[in-house]
Design a protein around this nucleic acid. Structure first.
Lengths: 160, 160
DNA sequence: AAGAGGCTGTTATCTTGTAACATTGCCGCA
DNA sequence: TGCGGCAATGTTACAAGATAACAGCCTCTT
């Protein structure tokens, strides 16, 4: 499920399952935590999950407006902020765009592989890389809190 | 010089030397490459180097306008683009801001430690981290081209 | 003199993100 | 029953970041 998502962002697959899994998982997580995954927030999460490509806030807004005429920028940003604070989505800083989290539940800053050709972006969880980041910070006597790792290039599919 | 800058971003030091070193180095590099470090571009580089904190494009613009009334956003962005393409500055994606490069000359994507308290940002060059990044990409069959690594937290000074 | 290319000027606009205040709806409690 | 508080959303306006598109200028070359 989560682990499966993580390895097929750049491949063809039944994406409906991705979305369903993500939404189900999000509902569970929010229920456990006692926070409200309102219809609006869920809709935004669904929109972000429409693809494995990071989606801009204003693209979310365009999409959201179809079903929700009152939507405005703050509507979207509030929902995105909520989803980020609950670890359900990530912001891809180098693109100013948002991506569904495949490791929802665990608090973590993600590590991403962004294909410049097809746009598909995969979240990876690489313990060695994580360690290397911590060690690098430690050597510099720096207390790491948030770690942004975004590698862009070509996915296997586009390279072939 | 370069290595020295890299370890004192978060400490007090004679910053004039940083700037002078950076400008001198930039002139050398551009001369060797046969590209033009025009007065305008040099001025922008100097402004970016005024501190070890990443500087927003519009902050650069405000500062630039003092000596250069005709300056407009494109003026600044063109200069920043040039300086980035020559590896003389980096963009800090998570802040939408720009920082002088302490390793100018070598082509590289930087790795940064950003103090959320004082704002000082240090560029580090950590071969082990570099390797870990390459390995992580390789394991995912991904061809890495650009690597964004931005760790934010507390510098030793602010933690104390 | 003509033309090409690189740099800068200039105007306008686009994209991304936030401030600030109003409104709604629900829940607990007097 | 009504009131106070809080979380979520509505609404308007704007700030901040970035680029498009075209004009002008200078230099070098032929």
């Amino acid at each position: 499920m989560a682990a499966q998502n993580a390895v097929h962002a750049h491949t063809s697959h039944n994406h409906r399952e991705c979305i369903d899994d993500a939404l189900t998982r999000a509902r569970e997580i929010c229920a456990v935590r006692g926070v409200q995954l309102t219809p609006l927030r869920e809709k935004v999460l669904q929109i972000v999950w429409r693809s494995h490509k990071p989606v801009g806030a204003y693209d979310v807004l365009d999409e959201l407006t179809r079903s929700h005429k009152a939507a405005r920028p703050p509507t979207v940003y509030r929902a995105l902020d909520f989803l980020m604070s609950e670890g359900l989505i990530h912001k891809i800083e180098s693109l100013n765009a948002y991506l569904g989290c495949t490791e929802a539940g665990a608090t973590h800053s993600g590590q991403f592989l962004i294909c410049r050709q097809c746009g598909a972006t995969e979240e990876i969880v690489d313990p060695k890389l994580e360690t290397a980041l911590d060690q690098a910070a430690k050597r510099a006597h720096f207390i790491a809190e948030r770690k942004v790792v975004e590698i862009s290039g070509l996915c296997a599919r586009c390279a072939a």
